[in-house]
Amino acid sequence: MVLIAIVIGCVLGAIIGINLPIISYTYSTYLAIAIIAALDSVFGGITGVLKGEFDFKVFISGFFCNAILSILLTYLGTKLNVDIYLAAIVVFVGRMFINLTIIRKYYIDKWSKKIEEIKNKKKN
Protein backbone atom coordinates (compact mmCIF):
# COMPACT_ATOMS: atom_id res chain seq x y z
CA MET A 1 0.00 0.00 0.00
CA VAL A 2 2.71 2.41 1.03
CA LEU A 3 4.77 1.35 -1.97
CA ILE A 4 1.91 2.06 -4.32
CA ALA A 5 1.55 5.53 -2.79
CA ILE A 6 5.26 6.12 -3.24
CA VAL A 7 5.20 5.02 -6.88
CA ILE A 8 2.11 7.07 -7.71
CA GLY A 9 3.60 10.10 -5.96
CA CYS A 10 6.90 9.73 -7.82
CA VAL A 11 5.30 9.29 -11.24
CA LEU A 12 2.92 12.22 -10.75
CA GLY A 13 5.73 14.38 -9.44
CA ALA A 14 7.95 13.47 -12.37
CA ILE A 15 5.30 14.22 -14.97
CA ILE A 16 4.34 17.55 -13.46
CA GLY A 17 7.93 18.47 -12.65
CA ILE A 18 9.05 17.92 -16.24
CA ASN A 19 6.24 20.07 -17.59
CA LEU A 20 6.75 22.95 -15.20
CA PRO A 21 8.58 26.00 -16.53
CA ILE A 22 12.30 26.20 -16.00
CA ILE A 23 13.42 28.25 -13.06
CA SER A 24 16.41 30.56 -12.97
CA TYR A 25 19.79 29.08 -12.25
CA THR A 26 20.14 31.59 -9.44
CA TYR A 27 17.54 29.76 -7.41
CA SER A 28 18.71 26.26 -8.25
CA THR A 29 20.93 26.21 -5.16
CA TYR A 30 17.87 26.76 -2.98
CA LEU A 31 15.97 24.11 -4.85
CA ALA A 32 18.82 21.64 -4.45
CA ILE A 33 19.02 22.22 -0.73
CA ALA A 34 15.24 21.81 -0.47
CA ILE A 35 15.54 18.50 -2.29
CA ILE A 36 18.18 17.27 0.13
CA ALA A 37 16.02 18.32 3.06
CA ALA A 38 12.95 16.62 1.60
CA LEU A 39 14.92 13.46 0.86
CA ASP A 40 16.14 13.44 4.42
CA SER A 41 12.57 13.80 5.67
CA VAL A 42 11.37 10.99 3.43
CA PHE A 43 14.05 8.63 4.67
CA GLY A 44 13.28 9.71 8.20
CA GLY A 45 9.63 8.97 7.56
CA ILE A 46 10.40 5.52 6.19
CA THR A 47 12.57 4.79 9.18
CA GLY A 48 9.70 5.95 11.40
CA VAL A 49 7.27 3.67 9.67
CA LEU A 50 9.62 0.72 10.00
CA LYS A 51 10.19 1.41 13.67
CA GLY A 52 6.49 1.97 14.23
CA GLU A 53 7.14 5.46 15.56
CA PHE A 54 5.76 7.31 12.57
CA ASP A 55 3.98 10.51 13.45
CA PHE A 56 2.02 12.25 10.77
CA LYS A 57 2.51 15.73 12.25
CA VAL A 58 6.21 15.28 12.87
CA PHE A 59 6.73 13.98 9.34
CA ILE A 60 4.83 16.72 7.54
CA SER A 61 6.23 19.52 9.68
CA GLY A 62 9.74 18.07 9.31
CA PHE A 63 9.33 17.72 5.57
CA PHE A 64 8.33 21.31 4.93
CA CYS A 65 10.10 23.03 7.81
CA ASN A 66 13.45 21.43 7.03
CA ALA A 67 13.15 22.37 3.38
CA ILE A 68 12.13 25.97 4.08
CA LEU A 69 14.65 26.36 6.89
CA SER A 70 17.47 25.09 4.75
CA ILE A 71 16.47 27.49 1.98
CA LEU A 72 16.44 30.36 4.45
CA LEU A 73 19.82 29.34 5.79
CA THR A 74 21.23 29.19 2.31
CA TYR A 75 19.86 32.64 1.60
CA LEU A 76 21.39 33.92 4.82
CA GLY A 77 24.64 32.27 3.78
CA THR A 78 24.71 34.14 0.48
CA LYS A 79 24.10 37.39 2.33
CA LEU A 80 26.85 36.67 4.85
CA ASN A 81 29.11 35.28 2.15
CA VAL A 82 29.36 32.00 4.08
CA ASP A 83 28.45 28.72 2.42
CA ILE A 84 25.95 27.66 5.07
CA TYR A 85 24.21 25.32 2.65
CA LEU A 86 27.26 23.10 2.95
CA ALA A 87 26.50 22.64 6.64
CA ALA A 88 22.87 21.87 5.83
CA ILE A 89 23.94 19.31 3.24
CA VAL A 90 26.36 17.69 5.69
CA VAL A 91 23.67 17.39 8.35
CA PHE A 92 20.95 16.14 6.01
CA VAL A 93 23.12 13.68 4.15
CA GLY A 94 24.57 12.43 7.44
CA ARG A 95 21.09 11.80 8.75
CA MET A 96 20.13 10.16 5.48
CA PHE A 97 22.96 7.68 5.90
CA ILE A 98 21.92 6.95 9.48
CA ASN A 99 18.32 6.38 8.38
CA LEU A 100 19.45 4.22 5.47
CA THR A 101 21.52 2.15 7.87
CA ILE A 102 18.49 1.66 10.10
CA ILE A 103 16.34 0.67 7.11
CA ARG A 104 19.01 -1.72 5.87
CA LYS A 105 19.40 -3.31 9.28
CA TYR A 106 15.66 -3.68 9.64
CA TYR A 107 15.31 -5.57 6.39
CA ILE A 108 18.40 -7.67 6.99
CA ASP A 109 16.97 -8.69 10.35
CA LYS A 110 13.66 -9.43 8.75
CA TRP A 111 15.14 -11.55 6.00
CA SER A 112 17.53 -13.42 8.25
CA LYS A 113 14.62 -14.25 10.55
CA LYS A 114 12.63 -15.53 7.61
CA ILE A 115 15.54 -17.64 6.40
CA GLU A 116 15.94 -19.09 9.88
CA GLU A 117 12.26 -19.85 10.03
CA ILE A 118 12.45 -21.64 6.71
CA LYS A 119 15.45 -23.59 7.92
CA ASN A 120 13.64 -24.54 11.13
CA LYS A 121 10.62 -25.59 9.12
CA LYS A 122 12.81 -27.79 6.96
CA LYS A 123 14.42 -29.32 10.02
CA ASN A 124 11.08 -30.02 11.54
Binding site: A5, G9, V42, V49
Partner: peptide
Protein backbone atom coordinates in the same frame (compact mmCIF):
# COMPACT_ATOMS: atom_id res chain seq x y z
CA UNK B 1 0.63 7.43 6.48
CA UNK B 2 0.22 6.23 2.92
CA UNK B 3 -1.22 9.53 1.75
CA UNK B 4 1.40 11.52 3.63
CA UNK B 5 4.31 9.56 2.25
CA UNK B 6 2.78 9.63 -1.22
CA UNK B 7 2.40 13.39 -0.96
CA UNK B 8 5.93 13.79 0.32
CA UNK B 9 7.24 11.66 -2.53
CA UNK B 10 5.20 13.69 -4.96
CA UNK B 11 6.62 16.98 -3.74
CA UNK B 12 10.12 15.57 -3.53
CA UNK B 13 10.12 14.15 -7.04
CA UNK B 14 8.46 17.29 -8.34
CA UNK B 15 11.27 19.48 -7.04
CA UNK B 16 13.81 16.87 -8.02
CA UNK B 17 12.73 16.89 -11.63
Amino acid sequence: ITITIGLACFVLVLILF
